Simulated assay, not measured.
Amino acid sequence: MEEHIFNIDGLTHQFADGTFALKDLSLTIQQGKKIALLGNNGAGKSTLFQHLNGLLKPTTGSIKFKGKKLKYDRKTLLLLRKQVGIVFQDPDSQLFSANVQQDISFGPMNLGWERDVVREKVEWAMAQTEVTELKDKPTHFLSLGQKKRVAIAGVLAMEPEVWILDEPTAGLDSYFSKQFMALLDNIHLPDKTIILSTHDVNLAYQWADEIIVMNDGKVIYQGDPVTIFHHEDLLYQAHLEKPWIFEMFQSLIQSKIFTEEDPAPRTKEELLQKMEIEKVN
């Protein structure tokens, strides 16, 4: 039986200035999925993420985590944040210790682990994100890309059950973006759920098991990563473009090289392989 890690029912959030960021949003998130959250700026993606980590409390509606309704007392929130790690879009919102190693160590130390275990996890996380050489450097002297990698390492060291990542590759160059996505694939296990927001439709199309699209505080699509790009109305509503691999495949269908019944390739390698097979045939 598929387990839902989150059940969100009628979630509405109104800020103090009267703005509604989320509007009667209902959503279920299945455990073990790799989920890409898409939507235009102001769609409510970051606000939704902060609710999943308990940083914001709903104005109305409810959230269940592992079948239990989320409460907002200190004990419940501490337990939730041990299991649900969040990487903010702006790393300056997350980094506050004197140097890199201290910042990455903060979360694991608060989990009550033995000092040797903390050291092992921190060293591993620094190696995975390639920040070991920066371990003694003050965090305020880091570049944006370096800060992003340190923020990611801080969550990685805690080994959460759920990863929430708000625009994780923004500010990273091509090399570190690819390295980070490979890292997500490496840490993804059947009991690990990864939810990331991105404006990169190519990344979402290639990587995700499932895509969720938000617009104006609501979910307008939740499903497989291919079907959404057949819905011109939803793409227009959410200001989304089609991935280049999808567009190329559609062009090849129009040229009668492939048919609508052929499974859509998700990566450049899959597309090239299909073309090679077609040549042989």
Rank of each mutant, 00 (worst) to 15 (best):
F106K: 00
A127G: 11
A153G: 07
G42L: 05
G223N: 08
L235H: 09
V122D: 03
T139C: 13
E261K: 13
E123F: 03
S197E: 03
Y175F: 15
D103H: 11
K147P: 01
I277H: 13
L79T: 13
Q254C: 08
N202P: 12
Q50V: 00
L11F: 03
V155L: 12
I277R: 07
L144F: 14
N110S: 07
D9C: 14
S255Y: 01
I8M: 05
L189V: 08
G32T: 08
H199Y: 06
Y205A: 02
I253W: 05
D200W: 02
L172P: 09
G32F: 00
T267K: 11
D224N: 10
V118W: 02
M158Q: 01
H140E: 10
F65D: 04
W163Y: 15
Y236Q: 14
L165W: 11
I257W: 10
Q273H: 13
A16K: 13
G154L: 04
Q50F: 06
Q101A: 12
Q250C: 14
E210K: 09
N281Y: 11
V100S: 03
K57V: 14
K268Q: 12
P108F: 08
A16L: 09
N41G: 04
G171H: 00
L111M: 15
P160Q: 02
Y72C: 11
G39L: 09
E2L: 09
F141C: 10
T169Y: 05
D73R: 07
K178A: 15
I187R: 05
P58G: 13
Q254P: 08
L271V: 03
G154M: 04
T193W: 10
P58Y: 12
D191Q: 14
Q94C: 04
L183N: 08
E278Q: 15
D136M: 07
E210I: 00
N53I: 13
N202W: 00
E261Y: 14
V219D: 02
Q273F: 10
L77N: 10
Q254F: 02
I194V: 03
D103T: 06
E167A: 00
T139D: 12
T19P: 01
L134H: 06
V118E: 11
Q83N: 13
L252V: 07
Q128F: 01
F65S: 05
S62R: 11
I104G: 01
G107Q: 04
W207S: 06
N7V: 08
I277M: 05
I277C: 03
D233R: 12
F141S: 04
M109R: 14
S251T: 03
G54N: 06
F88V: 11
T169M: 04
K75S: 02
V162S: 03
L144A: 08
Q89A: 12
K147C: 02
T169W: 08
F176H: 07
H239N: 15
P190E: 07
K256H: 12
P160V: 12
E159V: 05
P243T: 08
R149P: 01
Q222P: 04
L183Y: 00
L11C: 05
I152W: 07
P160K: 02
A182N: 15
H239T: 05
H239P: 06
G54A: 03
F180P: 00
S174T: 14
T169C: 10
E123C: 00
L235C: 08
D173G: 02
A125T: 06
I277Q: 08
V155E: 03
A98T: 14
E260D: 05
H230N: 08
P265I: 12
L55Q: 15
A36M: 01
K66Q: 15
E3C: 00
